[in-house]
Nucleic acid binder design. Sequence first.
DNA 1: TTGTACGCGTTATCAC
DNA 2: GTGATAACGCGTACAA
Lengths: 351, 351
Amino acid sequence: MSASNKPLNLKEVSRLLGVSTATVSNAFNRPDQLSEALRQRILKESAELGYHGPNLAARSLRKGKSDVVAVVLADTLSYSFSDPVASQFLQGVSEVLSHKKKQLLLLSSRLASKEQSSAESLPDGFIFYGAPKGDAFERISRSGKPIIAVDFEQGKVPSLNINNQAAARAVALHVIRESEERVAVVSLRLIASDRVCRLEKADLQAECKEVIAYNRLQGYLQACQEKGVDLPPHMIWHTPMNTPEMAEKAAYEALTITPRPTVILCMSDVLALGVLRVAQSLHIRVPEDLRIVGFDDIPEANRCTPSLTTVCQQSIEKGRIAARCLFDSDNPQAQLMETRLVVRRSSGDTH
Amino acid sequence: MSASNKPLNLKEVSRLLGVSTATVSNAFNRPDQLSEALRQRILKESAELGYHGPNLAARSLRKGKSDVVAVVLADTLSYSFSDPVASQFLQGVSEVLSHKKKQLLLLSSRLASKEQSSAESLPDGFIFYGAPKGDAFERISRSGKPIIAVDFEQGKVPSLNINNQAAARAVALHVIRESEERVAVVSLRLIASDRVCRLEKADLQAECKEVIAYNRLQGYLQACQEKGVDLPPHMIWHTPMNTPEMAEKAAYEALTITPRPTVILCMSDVLALGVLRVAQSLHIRVPEDLRIVGFDDIPEANRCTPSLTTVCQQSIEKGRIAARCLFDSDNPQAQLMETRLVVRRSSGDTH
DNA sequence: TTGTACGCGTTATCAC
DNA sequence: GTGATAACGCGTACAA
C-alpha cells in the first residue's frame, strides 16, 4: 500500500479509480444508479485504498441526516452505567438501533449548553431517559427533530411511561399483611438533600419535582391507608443516589429503631440490596423477621439471597419500544407500559 | 418567539444580531477575539433565538476534529450493556470524557463496514474494548487517529491490559488446597462452539484466538500442575456467552458427576453466579462442600451469598486510564495494570 | 474589533 | 453511466 499524504476523500478516490465522484458516491448510496459490476469494483478498490465510505460530517451536512440517535440521560453517563436499570434500558435501545443501522451517541442532560450543545446538532432523534435536569430538553425540543420522553412527561412530546403509583401500591399491598405492621420506606431522591435523611411533615406536602419517587410514594401511602397502617414522614428515608451504600445508611437507622419495622418498602431493587445486606449483618432474618420489597426487577433481584419481591417494569423492552417509536409517527402520544408484581422470597410466603 | 422557517445557522444569527459571522463564531470559539460584553450579548441573544452553538457536522468538517470519542466494543452494544464488566469499563471512560468535554459514541466491531464505516470517520479517537471481531480494527487504525487497545494487543498500537495468566494462577493457587482436589473449570468463550460443552484434548493444543480465556486457562493449568492436581480437558466447560444461564448448564453437568468436583474455577464472576445458583439448587454447600472462585470483581461479587472470592481487575479504573491515555502521547506502548486477589467466602476459610 | 472570501467532503441536479 | 457545479454550515486568514 502506498503511503500517500493526500487526504483520502471521495474525490481523490474517484480520481484514482478513474471514475467520476458521482459514480463513487452512487456506489455507496444508490446502487440502482450504476451496474452491479462497477459498483462491486468500486467498493472493493476503494476499500483497498483505505476508503471505507463517505465522511459522516460532510454527508450529514449535505443530507441533513446522520443516522445517529442520541440517548439523553438524566444523570451523568458515568452514573448511568453503574445503574442496572439504565443499563437494561440502553440494552433494549441499542438492540433496535443496530437493526435499524443507527449509531448511538450518549448525552447527558446534566451538561451545560456549552459542553455539548454542538453535539446536539448531529443526531436525527433523541430519546430522553428520565426527566432532564437542565435546559437540554427545551434546547433540543425546539429543534423539531423526533423526540421521545421516557419515564416522564413534558409538553406534548410523545412519552413512554409506567404507572408508578399503581405499581407501588400493588407491591405494598402484597407485602403489608395487617394493620399492626410497622412500615418503613427507603426512597429514591425525593427531596433536594444530598444526604440520607428522614422526611419531615412539610416534605410530603411540598411540590415534588422528582416525579418517579413522588408517585411511588403516593402508591405506598395509599396502600398503607387501605391496610390501616400508619406511615409517618419520619419512617420515610430519603437517599440522594440509587446505590446500595446509600440504602445501607438508611437501613441501619431504620433497623435499629425499637420497635423495629416489620416491612421495608424500597423504591428500587438496588436500594433493597443495601437493606438486605444490613439486615444480614444485624442478624435479622428475611423474610421471617423483616419483609423487604424492591422495584424494577433487575437481574440481581432474582439471584440474591433471599430473592427479591419486586415490580417488573420491563426495562429492556422499554428501551426497545422507545427506539422503535422514535421514528414511527403513528404511535400514541403517551404510552403506558404494563408492570407486573413479581413475588419472590423476600416478602415471605405468598398464601 | 417568532417562528421563522429560515434555517437557524451562524450566518442567520449574525444577520439577526447585526454583527458579522466571524464575530458570532468568535463568541463561541475564541473569547479573546472580542470584548467580553459583546460576547455575552451574542451568547445570550443567540440562545434566545434558539441557536445554541455551531453545528457539529460543519464544525467538524471544517476543523477536522469533532470532540467525539468512540468506544469500539468487541461484542454487540446490546450484549455489552448487559455485561457488568463492560459497564464498569464504560463508567470509567465516560467519567474522564465528561471532564475533557468529549462526547461518547458507541460502536461495535461486529458491525460490517457498510453499517457503520461512515460513523467511523467522525471520532477524534478510538478506544477498542476487547479484541475486535471483524476488520474494524484495521479500517480504523489506518486512519492515523489515536487508538488504544484494551484487553488485547495488536500491532504496535498502545495497549492497556492485565496479566490474565498470572491472576488466574493466583486465584487457583489460593482455592486449591491439596493434590486430592477435584477441579473443574467454567470457561468463557474458549473455542468456536456456540453451545456449552466440554473441551477435548485437541482444543488445548489448538491455536486460540480468544486470548483472554486462553491465558486464564494457562494460569489455571499452571496452578494445578504446581499443586499436583490433574485437570483433564473433559473437566473444562466451554460457554459461548458470559451469562449465568450458560454457566448453569455447565455447572449442572459438572456437579452431577461422581465423584463431584471440590473446586470450580470460573473465568468470570457472572459465570460464578450461575454456578453458585446451581450449587444451591442441588443443596451443595458453598464453601463447605464446594469452593468456587470467579474473576473480575463485579459489584455483585461482594453482595451475593456466599460472597465470591475473585480477582479484582479494576474495570472502572481501566476505563479511566484508557480514556486518559488516548490523547496523551507520552505513555508507554503496553501498559499492564495490577490485579488483586480478593478473598471472600466462596473459597472457604482463609486460615 | 469587524467583515469577506474560501474551502472542508459530500450529494443532488443537471445536461451530456 | 459521466462530469461540472451549487449548496450544506462553519472557521479562519487576511484585509480593513
